[in-house]
Design a protein around this nucleic acid. Sequence first.
DNA 1: TTAGTCTACTTGATTAGACAACTAGATCTG
DNA 2: CAGATCTAGTTGTCTAATCAAGTAGACTAA
Lengths: 237, 237
Amino acid sequence: MSQSADGIARWRRVADEIREMIGGGLEKLPVETELAARFGVNRHTVRRALAALAAEGLVRSERGRGTFVERLPERLVYPVGARTRFTENVSRLARQPAGRLIAATREAADGQLARELSLRPGAPLHRLETLHVADAIPLSVGTAWFPAERFPNIVAAYAETGSVTKALAAHGVDDYRRHQTRIGAERVGRADAAHLACPADGIVLVTESANYDPKDVPIQFSRSRFLADRVELLIDS
Amino acid sequence: MSQSADGIARWRRVADEIREMIGGGLEKLPVETELAARFGVNRHTVRRALAALAAEGLVRSERGRGTFVERLPERLVYPVGARTRFTENVSRLARQPAGRLIAATREAADGQLARELSLRPGAPLHRLETLHVADAIPLSVGTAWFPAERFPNIVAAYAETGSVTKALAAHGVDDYRRHQTRIGAERVGRADAAHLACPADGIVLVTESANYDPKDVPIQFSRSRFLADRVELLIDS
DNA sequence: TTAGTCTACTTGATTAGACAACTAGATCTG
DNA sequence: CAGATCTAGTTGTCTAATCAAGTAGACTAA
C-alpha cells in the first residue's frame, strides 16, 4: 500500500485499468514497457499487476511473444450421479470423447483404499492414471484403483477400449453405480497441469467416489480432477 | 530460468527448500532477510518463492509479524442434496452454526434469474448477501434472490433468525427442495475473501441452485461460495 | 498500575538496472 | 529457393536500494 496517495497499491490500480482495457475486446495487450510508460510506473509494477490478472485467469503471458487476453470458452456441464459415465456424459453433448491411459501401476491398499473397497489393508490393486478429453480438449485426469484379484486384466482392457465401462464389462461387470461423491477444489498439481495443458496455477474440482456392482460390492475407487475453467459439475437430486 | 546453472529458476529451488523446512514441523519461518542470507539470494527472490508457497496455501505472511506455516484443519463435509439446509448440516456435526446478513438490496431480475425463478425479466427481487459460520469459522458466503412480491419481509426475517428456512417459514413456506445444483470452482473474489477471512488467492467451491416450494414453484435462487480449504461437498446418490 | 510513546523489527511496494531465454521475422548463404 | 543465421523485440529472472506500514515489546510519564 505504500508510495501511494490513497493507500491503495499502485499495482492494484494498474491491474484495474488493464482489466478495463480487456473489457474493450482487445486480444493482445501492449508490451510491458509500453504499459509501464502509459501508467507512469516501473515495469515491475506492471508485472505485479499482470501476475494478479494471470492468477484470475484473465491473461496469459508467453515469453518472447507477449501477453494475451484469455477468452474462456463456455464450460462443459458434467452430470454427477449414481450412474456417472464419462463417455455417455460427453457424447450426449455432441462432443467426441476419448480416454487415454497415462500410466498403470500395481500397489497395495492403504487404510483409506482398503476401507473404501472393503478389502484388507495391503490387498493388491491396479492403479490407473487416465486422461479424459472432449473434442481434443483435456477436461480431466483421473486415478482409479481396482482390486487386482478380481480384475486381473483391467489395465489392458482399459488401454484397448479407453472406457472404464467397457473394461469392467470385459470382467463380467455389466452395471455399476456410485453411492456418494465427495467434491473439493484445489490448485492443480504439476503433473496434472502438464496433462491438462493448463497454466500451473489452474484450479481443479476434485471428486472422490467408489463404484459398486449390482450386489453392492465395491469394484473401483476413483479420484478425478476436473479443470474448473472447462468443466462444471451438475448434481441432480 | 536465467542466472542459474541447470536452467531451473533460483526462486523455485528456494521454494523447494522452504517446503522441506516446513515438513520439519516448524511454525514460523525465519524472516525474509535471514532466508535470503541462508540461501545466498536477494530478498526479492525469497519473496518470489514465498509468493508461490502462499499460492499453494502452505504459508501465510503477515506484515510486521512474519511468515507462518499454514496447518490446514480437517475439512468440514457439507452434504448437498434435495433438502440442503445449512443449519441442519452444521449442527449435525456438533458445530455451532450461525448465519449473518452482510447486505441486502432490491434489484430487478435479469435474464438468468428470471428464467431460474419463473418470473418475467425485470421482476423485483430481494437480494441477500449472507455469511455462514461454524464455530466462529467462516465457511461460506452466499447470495440469495427471492421474489420481492411473494416475500416482502424476507430481509427482516432473515436478519432476525439467521436462517433461510425460518425466514421462509415466516412467509408461510413450510418446506422446500432443490432439483439441481451446479458446482464449479474459482478464485475467491476480493469482497468474499474479506468476509471469509481467507487469503486473497483462496479457492472457493461455487454452487448454484434454485429452491422450490412443495408445489414446485421456485422461491429462491442462490449462489454460494464455500472456501475449499475448509469445506468439501458430499453428494448422495 | 496504566496508558501512551518510542523503537527495533518485519513484511509490502516501488523504482532502477542488468542479463537470460525465447519468438518471429528479416537477411544472408549455398 | 531452402535453410541457416542474425537481430530486434518481448517476457522471465535476479540483484540492489529505499521507503511505507504494521507489530510487539520496552520504556516512560502520569
